[in-house]
Design a protein around this nucleic acid. Structure first.
Length: 555
RNA sequence: GCCCCCAUCGUCUAGAGGCCUAGGACACCGGCUUUUCAUGCCGGCGACCGGGGUUCGAAUCCCCGUGGGGGUGCCA
């Protein structure tokens, strides 16, 4: 049977956490494909593994897709004619399909325990042969299954894979042939009664009339299994397109465990250099000592993210972004992330890189998708975000900034619109919103929070017999008289001072900068002082002056 | 081990037998702009995995090798 009629594609994540960037790319390609060819894009939640489902994950997935602007036509929250869109709500469909296979002798009951299967696999491995589940000569009957159940044995259903070779056509990779007898009889219904992924996918894709399956290449080996099942069930076989994988820049798999890996390594380094003790680490993380020990020793364990975040901050390492939400918190623009991710494994040709959504849709095609796995180059993402931020309209930028500030809990979320716009404007050239915060955040915080950088104080203020301090002292009364308090006015004061004293701009601007920001980094000095306000500026200059002769700013 | 996929600058890629002296972007290096940090602008470095074929001609087609990756679950 072949597909005819409308184009329908789906993104089918399991609700086990935030949306991974790899998943986002898969969703994006499905969405682009549908938009380009007039298809319907479906979101289906694959929650057949009851144990792994995480409360609230579905909503997070939906939020992240929304944030990216990847909107679906049918899904669990928006409904649609072929729902429900959660597999956990479609049990009757799977049950009916299994009954059919069982009745037709295309699937059979099996009663092996996990231990027995494990032993079989191990012995096969020991004999250096590949393990394939041995299909019984006669399939167990319903009565056998009932008896096994009564005896407390696990009862699963396996699909009897036809003993024939199969060629699957992939829209990206071309024909892929699998030899006869290479596939084993896979479990399609677990002992808890729920279908496995393979089975649920096949049943749902058919019932939801999915015409094109665009999914990650890690699913390529699953495709022949699915096609055999589609044939056995009399379903149409959709078209397949397996997308190249996305890896970290070092070629490793992008996994949420990377976050723990990076922080774990940093903590271990601290322990090795005796900068921290294990107790310090546990205290910083606010975790129990045993939990810390386990986390340090075992790469496959996780502390909660709050603990990891505290450790990372204390150790001064940056946690790598893996989930879409991580990028959101880091202050990226969704349109930049989308554009960047689209370019991993796909090319619009003609040396084009920065594309609007509409341009991407217009340029999208399966032919433009590569076969080669790609790497996620954060540097390039950063550059792209910088480009997008520089090109965004003030209104769009302010909106995105507000979203970031509120989601990340930044103190900058309390800025009024005009001030936020001004802050964004004077930070022009920033890479992410996080950069904006690190550049101007201190101007909106309490005076006591200004942390004077020792090197900067030495170099800019104390050096040359306290030349910088002297500048501050002389400038303060002049600034006090300045009215109105504008960037131009401040600049004028500085220029006038320079002309009069023969000082260079840097000799004046830098002391002021360090006095109000604690560091030699801030927006243009006039803008910086205006954002701070006149009172704040004078107050901070006064506080800074107390640093002279080794004084303290503490009041 | 077995099965499958892949192979152009460090990275993402353009390239569908002559247009290739292999193009673009990021990174990197150098310079310019500049009151700091960035941004911006200009320039430079830099790749067809190896070996055999096919062809007048191969980055492009075929074979072998090598390398990388995926799969081999009652996870998806």
């Amino acid at each position: 049977m072949s597909i005819s009629g409308a184009i329908r594609a789906r993104f089918a994540p399991s609700p086990t956490g935030y949306l991974h960037v790899g998943g986002a790319r898969t969703a994006l390609f499905n969405w682009l494909f549908c938009k380009r060819f007039g298809g319907t894009f479906v979101l289906r939640i694959e929650d057949t593994d009851i144990l792994r489902n995480i409360e609230g994950a579905e909503q997070k997935l939906i939020d992240d897709l929304r944030w990216l602007g990847i909107l679906y036509d049918e899904g669990p929250d928006v409904g649609g004619p072929l729902g429900p869109y959660r597999q956990s709500e479609r049990r009757d469909l799977y049950d009916a399909a299994v009954r059919k296979l069982l009745a037709e002798g295309k699937a059979y009951y099996a009663f092996d325990t996990a231990e027995e299967l494990d032993a079989m696999r191990k012995s096969a491995e020991a004999q250096k042969r590949s393990f394939r589940y041995p299909r019984p000569a006669h399939f167990p009957t319903e009565a056998d299954a009932a008896r096994a159940r009564a005896e407390g044995r696990p009862v699963v259903v396996r699909f009897a894979v036809p003993n024939e070779s199969i060629t699957v056509h992939d829209e990206i990779l071309g024909d892929v042939t699998f030899g006869a007898g290479e596939l084993e009889d896979l479990v399609i219904v677990k002992s808890n009664g729920w279908p496995t992924y393979h089975f649920a996918v096949v049943v749902d894709d058919a019932h939801m009339k999915i015409s094109h399956v665009l999914r990650a290449q890690e699913h390529l080996m699953n495709t022949p299994k699915h096609v055999f099942m589609q044939r056995a069930l009399g379903y149409p076989v959709p078209k397949f397109a397996h997308l190249p994988l996305v890896f970290n820049i070092d070629g490793t798999k992008m996994s949420k465990r990377d976050k723990h890996k990076v922080v774990r390594a940093a903590v271990k380094e601290r322990l090795r250099s005796k900068a921290w003790t294990k107790d310090d680490a546990a205290r910083i993380a606010e975790s129990a000592a045993e939990a810390m020990d386990t986390w340090l020793d075992k790469a496959d364990t996780e502390l909660d993210m709050g603990q990891v975040t505290r450790l990372a901050a204390a150790a001064g390492v940056v946690i790598p972004e893996i989930d879409v939400h991580d990028f959101r918190l880091s202050g990226y623009l969704p349109e930049a992330l989308v554009n960047f991710v689209a370019l991993i494994g796909w090319s619009p040709k003609n040396d084009r890189e920065v594309l609007t959504r509409e341009e991407m849709i217009e340029a999208f095609s399966l032919e433009g998708i590569n076969k080669t796995a790609g790497r996620f180059d954060r540097e390039k993402l950063l550059a792209m975000n910088t480009t997008y931020a520089a090109a965004a309209s003030p209104a769009r930028l302010r909106e995105a900034f507000r979203d970031w500030a509120s989601v990340s809990g930044s103190a900058l979320s309390k800025l009024d619109d005009a001030t936020a716009a001004r802050a964004l404007e004077v930070c022009k050239g920033f890479r992410t919103f996080r950069d904006v915060e690190s550049k101007v955040g201190v101007l909106f915080g309490p005076d006591e929070a200004v942390a004077y950088d020792a090197d900067a104080v030495q170099k800019v203020l104390a050096k040359g017999g306290g030349a910088g301090f002297a500048v501050l002292e002389r400038l303060a009364p002049i600034l006090e008289k300045l009215e109105p308090w504008t960037a131009e006015g401040v600049d004028g004061v500085i220029k006038g001072y320079c002309e009069e004293s023969g000082a260079k701009m840097g000799d004046v601007a830098q002391p002021l900068r360090v006095a109000v920001a604690g560091r030699p980094v801030s927006p243009a000095i006039g803008e910086t002082l205006v954002l701070l306000g006149k009172a704040g500026t004078l107050k901070r200059i006064g506080r800074c002056l107390r640093l002279r002769d080794g004084g303290s700013v503490a009041s």
